[in-house]
Design a protein around this nucleic acid. Structure first.
Lengths: 237, 237
DNA sequence: CACATAATGTAACATAACAAACATTATGTT
DNA sequence: AACATAATGTTTGTTATGTTACATTATGTG
């Protein structure tokens, strides 16, 4: 149907406009798209959660709107543990630190929790972390680029590793999918291994940031022994 | 003052709560923080743009590349022209192309307009473009990393240039702040110059993507002559 | 201890957002 | 061409947001 394509075309345009300016006035969006405000509202309603209308503005989807209730609670439950672990990690960050933040679903909490007034240099290699850090006022952000891996929203490449060699890091905050006393610390994506190892090698201190559900789990990609970390930041002591 | 520290303490809590759930109901935030809604509003107002109140909710700061109002209107006004220019540019993209997309406020339109079914390799060096491209199914994304520049949401660094040397690009889509017959093609940020030039050098074709408001304008950073481009994609022919 | 000042709470009002119902226009089909 | 259906526009009224002003409480100071 050509109508449907018109609608999705408008949603694309909306995405573009929001990338430039968000929140975006409903009135402005309507004028820009050449339709009425009501139509924009209906488009947003039919966007499957990509966008939201709030206070006469359109904003990009946020982290609450995830579909059904069961999963939502599950997510929230893990999120609480992750947030707790990250709160401890965030306490370790000091003024004028150079920090490395790993990718994954845990570390975004950390990136968001670091006090805004701290003056930092922050190194990362994933899109969502970079997004959070880029909004900080007093932070110099360095993103290790390369080939994008959608599974973890992270990048990989040997130039990124080269760049790491030239950086000196105070504290590296590393996440993991599995932590086991004998089998060591593991994750799910092999391309992350060289980056994690290089970051740890370049860092004075390495801190493991994991919620307790990861304990006694083993993932395919091994990258460090547990004693390589100065501390383990978790929801439990 | 202990009062001020209480306020910033609440702002930190807000940040944590928003990391878990956003948008967050003003009513919920007030209850959670043990203060009135009015106080939460005032906190948000005094957060220096970290947070925003919208429709009775608190949301985290969003992208607003164009800080002040004057510029904001400028962007909105030109958005249609930019979209038109980008529509023409998007037509040039073919299956299995390797494309380079420049940073700025114009090129996000292009990134969003490229048909989703095209199989591509896309190279970019700015956060907002990467964000848009990362959502494509059939596209291999390469982000040139480095030091982040908030003004243009772009990255710079010599490793990024090294990475570019190893890539062969079909079509480079370059944007500019000024296009002048005699003075050539110019932009506002000097750190973008080496990247633009390297991308053009590595590309079979270079296309200039600008709306007509840029014609006969001159910006401080020169990076190419007009004849370096195969075509100029603009809202006017 | 009283005073000044800052922070927070409360109430009320103007305004604009949201949703429903209906009117209108476009699209597709026989 | 006429019909059915989908998409969009317009209007309206209820609602609740956001603001203003003022009251109240806390904090710091001489």
């Amino acid at each position: 149907m050509s109508r449907t394509s018109l609608k999705s075309e408008r949603l694309e345009k909306l995405a573009v406009m929001l990338a430039v300016q968000s929140p975006l006035k409903l009135e402005v969006a309507a004028a820009e798209l050449g339709v009425s405000e009501m139509t924009v509202r209906r488009d947003v309603l039919d966007s499957g959660g990509r966008f939201t209308c709030l206070g006469g503005h359109v904003i990009g989807a946020q982290n609450d709107i995830a579909g059904d209730y069961v999963l939502e609670q599950e997510i929230d439950h893990h999120a609480a543990a992750k947030a707790k672990a990250c709160a401890r990690a965030a306490n370790l960050v000091e003024d004028d630190d150079t920090i490395f933040i790993d990718c994954g679903t845990t570390t975004p909490h950390l990136a968001a929790m670091i006090p805004q007034d701290l003056r930092l240099t922050a190194v990362c290699y994933s899109l969502n972390i970079a997004d959070i850090l880029s909004r900080r006022q007093n932070t110099r952000l360095i993103l290790l680029g390369g080939l994008f891996h959608p599974e973890a929203a992270s990048f990989s490449g040997d130039v990124a590793l080269q760049e790491l060699q030239r950086l000196s890091i105070n504290k590296a905050f590393i996440s993991a999918g599995g932590v086991d006393e004998q089998r060591g610390v593991t994750c799910s994506h092999f391309h992350e291994v060289p980056v994690k190892q290089a970051a740890m090698a370049r860092s004075v201190q390495s801190h493991l940031v994991v919620d307790s559900s990861k304990f006694d789990k083993v993932r395919p990609a091994f990258f460090a022994q547990t004693d390589a970390f100065v501390s383990i930041c978790s929801d439990r002591g």
